[in-house]
Simulated scan of single mutants.
Amino acid sequence: MTTPVDSSAVVDLLGALAYAELTAFDRLAEDARLAPTLTGRAALARMAAAEITHHVQLTDRLAELGVDPAVAMTPFVPALDAFHESTRPSTWLEGLVKAYVGDGLATDFYREIAAFLPDPDRALVLDVLADTGHADFAVREVRAAVKADRKVPGRLSLWGRRLVGEAMSQSQAVIAEHDRLAELIIAGTGDIRGVALLIERITSAHTKRMKALGLNP
């Protein structure tokens, strides 16, 4: 049974995720221009299209709750913008690793918290975070590059470690700066160590994603 939660915590999570989806759209659309092939460019464009669709779903729900989506998103702008500015890819492969690893970290973060939400909001968040299958493209491209050039694994492994470091800092900042989200996690887990355990699970999932790419975590 889901622990009753303050509706303001629901709004916080939906607002954070809505802005995350909006920035993901912007970033993927920009990164698509780095693609060496039209196939790659189209693949990232489709990922971007999925992100903006998710953004609309979340903002529609916020409006249903009587909340201005812009007001709900605004508190999360600094942390999310700082993450993307500090992890701007300089190559096509870095963009793919960020799309797979970086977005995967964010997805794990939001999915963990969503588990403590009541329906229909829990179902909405989990639907928005569901794998659309686009991740498979990133894995194929990166693994092919890793096999083709022995210099690639080391460089991209370092990039992946940087991504996880920045993402963890961002996640912890979001929790620390928004008491209602922290309270939601603690209430949901029933343990003051809930936040630390959440971070541990996200880190473990990151390790698996890096290995899937053929990189060292």
Rank of each mutant, 00 (worst) to 15 (best):
residue 109 F to S: 11
residue 217 P to L: 00
residue 10 V to S: 11
residue 116 F to Q: 07
residue 210 M to C: 07
residue 205 A to I: 00
residue 199 I to E: 13
residue 129 L to F: 03
residue 20 A to C: 07
residue 134 H to Q: 05
residue 177 E to D: 15
residue 164 V to Q: 10
residue 188 G to R: 13
residue 119 D to F: 00
residue 149 D to Q: 09
residue 88 R to P: 00
residue 100 Y to G: 02
residue 136 D to Y: 01
residue 74 T to Q: 13
residue 129 L to E: 10
residue 1 M to K: 03
residue 202 I to R: 15
residue 121 D to G: 07
residue 40 G to C: 12
residue 186 I to L: 12
residue 144 A to R: 09
residue 209 R to H: 03
residue 87 T to K: 04
residue 146 V to G: 06
residue 187 A to S: 15
residue 68 D to Q: 10
residue 65 L to G: 01
residue 72 A to S: 10
residue 202 I to L: 05
residue 60 D to K: 09
residue 23 T to N: 02
residue 136 D to I: 00
residue 212 A to L: 00
residue 44 L to G: 10
residue 144 A to E: 12
residue 106 A to M: 11
residue 78 P to C: 03
residue 190 G to H: 08
residue 95 G to F: 05
residue 93 L to G: 12
residue 9 A to Y: 12
residue 141 E to W: 02
residue 95 G to N: 11
residue 153 P to Y: 01
residue 101 V to P: 02
residue 74 T to F: 03
residue 46 R to P: 00
residue 122 R to Y: 06
residue 54 H to W: 01
residue 9 A to I: 08
residue 189 T to Q: 12
residue 92 W to Y: 15
residue 101 V to W: 02
residue 100 Y to W: 03
residue 135 A to S: 10
residue 46 R to A: 05
residue 156 L to N: 05
residue 169 S to T: 14
residue 43 A to W: 06
residue 165 G to T: 04
residue 12 D to W: 08
residue 196 A to V: 05
residue 70 A to I: 06
residue 102 G to K: 12
residue 73 M to A: 08
residue 2 T to D: 13
residue 198 L to P: 00
residue 17 L to I: 09
residue 167 A to S: 14
residue 121 D to P: 07
residue 181 L to V: 12
residue 175 I to W: 13
residue 198 L to H: 08
residue 129 L to P: 06
residue 45 A to Y: 08
residue 84 H to G: 08
residue 100 Y to H: 05
residue 85 E to M: 07
residue 65 L to R: 15
residue 1 M to R: 05
residue 114 A to D: 15
residue 175 I to S: 11
residue 120 P to R: 02
residue 147 K to D: 13
residue 120 P to L: 01
residue 89 P to W: 03
residue 160 G to D: 01
residue 36 P to L: 12
residue 188 G to H: 13
residue 160 G to R: 04
residue 99 A to E: 06
residue 91 T to H: 11
residue 183 E to V: 14
residue 195 V to T: 15
residue 163 L to Q: 09
residue 45 A to S: 15
residue 85 E to F: 03
residue 195 V to L: 12
residue 161 R to H: 05
residue 125 V to C: 09
residue 124 L to D: 04
residue 25 F to N: 13
residue 102 G to V: 04
residue 162 R to V: 04
residue 215 L to Y: 01
residue 43 A to T: 07
residue 64 E to N: 10
residue 148 A to Q: 06
residue 156 L to S: 05
residue 126 L to E: 15
residue 107 T to V: 06
residue 71 V to F: 03
residue 134 H to M: 02
residue 15 G to M: 06
residue 54 H to I: 00
residue 132 T to K: 08
residue 177 E to L: 11
residue 204 S to P: 00
residue 215 L to F: 02
residue 110 Y to A: 07
residue 46 R to Q: 05
residue 110 Y to F: 15
residue 4 P to C: 04
residue 133 G to E: 11
residue 39 T to P: 02
residue 46 R to W: 04
residue 172 Q to F: 05
residue 210 M to S: 03
residue 187 A to D: 14
residue 25 F to L: 10
residue 136 D to T: 00
residue 61 R to F: 00
residue 39 T to G: 15
residue 143 R to E: 01
residue 65 L to H: 09
residue 58 L to V: 10
residue 4 P to K: 01
residue 40 G to V: 06
residue 134 H to C: 00
residue 122 R to K: 11
residue 116 F to E: 13
residue 9 A to L: 13
residue 14 L to M: 06
residue 111 R to D: 14
residue 66 G to R: 12
residue 129 L to K: 04
residue 121 D to N: 14
residue 7 S to W: 08
residue 114 A to K: 14
residue 96 L to D: 05
residue 189 T to P: 03
residue 154 G to E: 01
residue 67 V to T: 13
residue 93 L to P: 08
